[in-house]
Design a protein around this nucleic acid. Sequence first.
DNA 1: TCTGGGGTCCTAGGACCC
DNA 2: TCTGGGGTCCTAGGACCC
Length: 429
Amino acid sequence: VSFEPRPPEPILHVDMDAFYAAVEVRRDPSLAGRPVLVGGRGGRGVVASASYEARAFGVRSAMPMAQALRRCPGAVVVAPDFRAYADVSAQLRAVLLDTTPLVEPLALDEAFLDVAGAVRLLGPPGRIGESIRRRIADELGLTASVGVAPNKFVAKVASTKAKPDGLLHVPAERVRAFLGALPVADLWGVGPATARRLQRAGLCTVAEVAALDERVLQALLGARAGSALARLAVGRDDRPVTPAAEAKGMSAEETFEADLTDREVLRRELLRLAERVAPRLRAAGLAGRTVTLKVRYSSFRTISRSRTIALPIADATSLHREAAALLDAVEVSGGIRLVGVGVTNLVPVAAASQMDLLHDDRWGRLERAADAVRSRFGGRAVTRGGLLDALAPQRSGDAAPVPEQWRRPVQTPGPPAAAPEEANPQANP
DNA sequence: TCTGGGGTCCTAGGACCC
DNA sequence: TCTGGGGTCCTAGGACCC
C-alpha cells in the first residue's frame, strides 16, 4: 500500500459560466456574441441567467425582466428550458464523476470535488481542474470556471473570482491575503441583510471582519452566524465534501399573471401544484408528513401555514386536501400573487410502508398507475377532469379546446368507487 | 415597468414529556 | 401556592443560495 500525502489544496469548485444562457447559445449559434436573457417573458418575470454580453449592461440574475430590458433593450429573451439544462447537468456530472466519486452537486451547474484521492493518478489538483475545464469545453461545448483551494468555502469564492472561463488556485498560505482584500458581501453566505449589518458596524472588507473578536461578531449576528463568519473570514472551513444528500423537502409554487381573489380558483391552483409535487415525491421514493401552504399577497407580504399529519403521504389528492384546508384559514380578499405547496418531514417510502406508516389509500394506487401511464405515453396522457380548464391550447399547442360538456367545477372528489388495477407498463392499456 | 422558482439552514416561542 | 431542567416536536418567518 502506497500512501499519498493529502495535497494542501485538494478541494475543487466547478461552476459553469452563465449556464442557462450558454446552453441557449449553444443550441442557437446565431445568439453567439449577443446579449441573451433567460427568464420569464411575462410581466412578472425575472432574469434567471444573463450572458456576459448582457451583464456588460448591468443586467444581473434575479433582476426583473422589464428592468433588464430597460438597461439592455437589444437583448434576446429566451424562455427557460429546465429539461435541457438538466440534461447538460447530467453530462457535467458524468465528467466530474470520471475524476472522483467525491462529487457534491450544489446546483445544476456547480459542484464541489475532493480530489485528494485522485492526485496519484491524475496529477496535482490544479492540473485536474484544468483537465476538467478542457473536457467540459470539448465534450459539452461550454465553459466552466474552477476554484482550487484548501476547503470548500475558499474554493467557492475562488471560482467566482476566476469567472468567466478561468481557474484560480489559492494556496493555503495565500488564503488570508486572498480573502482579506474582498468586500464582505463577496463571501458565500453573506447576503444583503448581513452585509448591511456589517456595514453599519463599519466593516467593509473581510480583513476587517477577520481582525474582530468572535464575540463581537456573535453580538452582531447571533451566536451561530457570528462564529461561522469568524471562521470563514480567516479561511477556516472543515466541512467535508459529501455526495448525494437525501432531499429534505419538495415544493412547487406559481406567481400569477394577475392577482387572484377567488377561493375556488385558488383551490384549483393548489391542486395543479400538488399534482406537480406528488409525482416527484413518488419518483424519489419519498413521502412526507408536513404540508406547507405558501401565500404571497399583492403587497408582497408572504406567509406560510403548515400542518403535520401522522401518516406520510405522497399522493396529490391528500396533498391538495391538506393545502386546501390550510387555505381555508387564510385571508384572500386582498389579492394573491403567488401560492405554493410544499412537503417536508420526508421519509423513504420503503421504510414508511415497512412500518405500515404510509397512508396508501386507493388514491395513492390510482396516482401510481397514472405515473406508469405517463412514463410510457407522455406527461399529458392522463389528467384530472378538474384540471381540464388548465389545458388551454396556449400552454404547448397540443391540446384542442376543451369541450364545454367536459368542464367541471373544481371539487375534491371522494375515493374512486373501485380500486383501480395496478398499471402494468407492459400491458396495452 | 418592482420583485421567479426550487431549495437549505437557522431562530424563536410554545406544547409536551420526563 | 410562585414555578427546575432537558429534550423533542411543531409552527412561522427570515436569510441565503443558484
